[in-house]
Design a protein around this nucleic acid. Structure first.
Lengths: 380, 380
DNA sequence: TAATTTTACGTGCACGCACACAAAACTAAA
DNA sequence: TTTAGTTTTGTGTGCGTGCACGTAAAATTA
């Protein structure tokens, strides 16, 4: 018994000695370390019990104004921050996060990446008793989005990660969450003006601007550019609009007199239809480049290949398999990629940090715009 | 007393109920959750005490073969993973990481970013009792690197994060660390063939390849390209070589017959000297583009401006202030940026994970090659 | 002034794990 | 069979925090 105490004393001594921080500089050696002050230490300094310190920290009632002020002062003096890992252990509380994202399909595997990121993050935070439940929907079917939402509200969740693919339906969802005071983060698609805790995704406008830059160095100043928009891209409609306006604003800023032709393509399932519409355009114009503001660049790529139109520069979004094929056979020049894995990962991490340690995230995290070419595709 | 027990039982029940996982699919709802099995649970199943389970988990002696096998079986059946946060709390052990990186100067603020990343990571892991000590050196002075190293070995560290700026000196450092069995990770500069736990930085070869791609779309096929190398870039010499060979290999692969002129510039402090060397080159050749494989693109940029040579495409590395100026006044077209903040952050995180939870990192993490232009510089 | 309520603070257990130590279960020699 | 030694297993304490509960002292009421 005695011996054990001594051993613990020695341990304690080692730690305390170890924690003797030398802040400041000496021989270019910096110690960067935040002292581990415990509520016990604080309690001793304030001549109160740990219970009182705890009450002060959590603003629980039952502390006289006098001691409250004293303890608060000492807490601040020591820059005390609660030890989250001990706290979670003691709290023994579990959190449930819902992830409302599109399901990946063979045709469109984009959303498998955020899902993987979410799963990885969930794995990392499981010891904090945070779990994730997926509610998947068809990104082309707003009904399925509503169904997923209805399934979601059957249970209680502490936070929600949403890919707000459908605007109107998202308003309803948000209304519900706001009423319930449930925090939520948007990923991939930005919805401004709502009470989201944060947004994680690309700055669509700037990505369009960058695409324009790339286009401008590839084509002569006098060229025309086509921007085809596919009807069925119901989802990230706003992103697409933003990308386009970013793209155009580059040439505006440059005071370039090159012409940009918007083109709506009604049905992305119908190859013949696409061909017809594009043939028409090419009859009337000479295009130097095509900017596809969605992930469907491969459709244009296939058309260009089939109709043997060479020397037309093509820039698109996202590294889905068909786009990658386009890159590899030299019909697509650049793809702008938005790190979808990271979006899912970060989304869950931020929500977990918010729930577990009350860490309020930034209002937005813009994922880096990785530029993918035939040459670097394998290293992305 | 009785009441308290009951409350705890209720708590326990809630958690267990909560953990009743429904794996698999139902209405597109997935529960992604790894069950929280404790050593207590395992002990009960195996009809042994938690002490025995603990001994088995950590391969400690004193367990009969029979029970060891039994416990191991049950551990595997439940896919048991120790709860790191409870473990660190119980271990009450502290780890010290040394960070051996160049110091940022007014002239070269690049290394302030990894430092910030390291500080941020340290802050995040402080509750795991991991601390970081900086040993800074002058990136142009190998003596200072050795001094920093000597300061480092005065103390004992559990892991080291190194920017191996000087090759020969790094060999010595590594020899020492290997003997001491201290794990180390390289950031920013790759040193192959050593026992580093991991490398975090750019794939220099691929970045050169990408630069070549960008260059190739900007200049006519018949142009000449200049690659100036500055003598004083002692540090990342290998990276620079790799970048150059990546760059050249792009045009090799393309079977392009354009000419690439290597140029060694002796003294980067002497503007007149630079001007003289470059003037000479421009007298003899017509260059369509210049690829600066170091962070000194701004020197070329200044020359081009001063000598009023327009329409020469310029690609460089790193977003230091002078390079940014070059971007903004349109003399530099592209900068390839290597996310230095992330390198520091990730380096510390990986070492901490390795120390605290024995998580072995990948052998290399290549940071995304962000392409910076005048147009997106403000959003990076 | 006593009885009662309210306020203010201390105490002890639990979270999941690690580890020192106690205890029990064998083993083998006397 | 007893005893000492060895191996195996069980127990208890602490890590830092949260919280239910206990309890003096102070404030209020009768």
């Amino acid at each position: 018994m005695r011996a054990r105490k001594i051993i613990h004393l020695v341990k304690l001594y080692q730690i305390k000695a170890h924690l003797l921080c030398i802040f400041g500089r000496r021989n270019n050696i910096f110690l960067f370390r935040t002292t581990l002050t415990t509520i016990k230490d604080i309690a001793k300094k304030a001549n109160v019990s740990t219970g009182t310190v705890d009450r002060v920290i959590h603003n629980r009632p039952g502390v006289s104004e006098k001691t409250k002020i004293l303890v608060k002062k000492i807490l601040e003096e020591h820059n005390f921050q609660i030890n989250t890992i001990a706290s979670t252990l003691a709290l023994n509380k579990s959190y449930k996060i819902a992830a409302l994202i599109p399901e990946a399909s063979a045709k469109n595997e984009f959303w498998s990446e955020p899902k993987k990121g979410i799963e990885k993050a969930t794995e990392e935070i499981k010891n904090f008793r945070v779990s994730t439940t997926f509610f998947l929907f068809n990104q082309f079917d707003n009904k399925s989005y509503l169904t997923a939402f209805k399934n979601l509200i059957k249970d209680e969740f502490d936070a929600v990660l949403v890919a707000p693919v459908f605007h109107k339906e998202t308003i309803k969802l948000v209304e519900y969450l706001d009423k319930k005071n449930t925090p939520y983060i948007f990923i991939n698609i930005e919805e401004k003006g709502l009470n989201a805790l944060s947004f994680i995704g690309q700055d669509s406008f700037k990505s369009g601007y960058l695409a324009a830059k790339l286009m401008s160095v590839m084509i002569p100043d006098s060229s025309n550019i086509m921007i085809p928009v596919f009807r069925l891209n119901t989802g990230n409609y706003l992103s697409i609009t933003e990308r386009i306006s970013g793209f155009k604003s580059f040439f505006n800023d440059k005071k370039s007199d090159l012409e940009i032709k918007d083109l709506v393509i009604p049905d992305l399932e119908n190859t013949d239809g696409i061909t017809k519409v594009l043939d028409e355009q090419f009859r009337d114009h000479i295009f130097g480049g095509i900017f596809v503001p969605s992930s469907n660049a491969y459709l244009i790529s296939k058309y260009l290949e089939a109709s043997k139109r060479n020397n037309i520069r093509l820039i698109g979004y996202d590294t889905n398999q068909e786009n990658i094929n386009g890159l590899k056979n030299d019909t697509i020049d650049f793809l702008i990629c938005q790190n979808p894995y990271m979006q899912g990962f970060k989304g869950i991490k931020l929500l977990s940090d918010y729930l577990v340690m009350n860490k309020v995230p930034e209002t937005s995290y813009h994922s880096p715009m990785t530029i993918v070419t035939k040459e670097n595709i394998d290293s992305i």
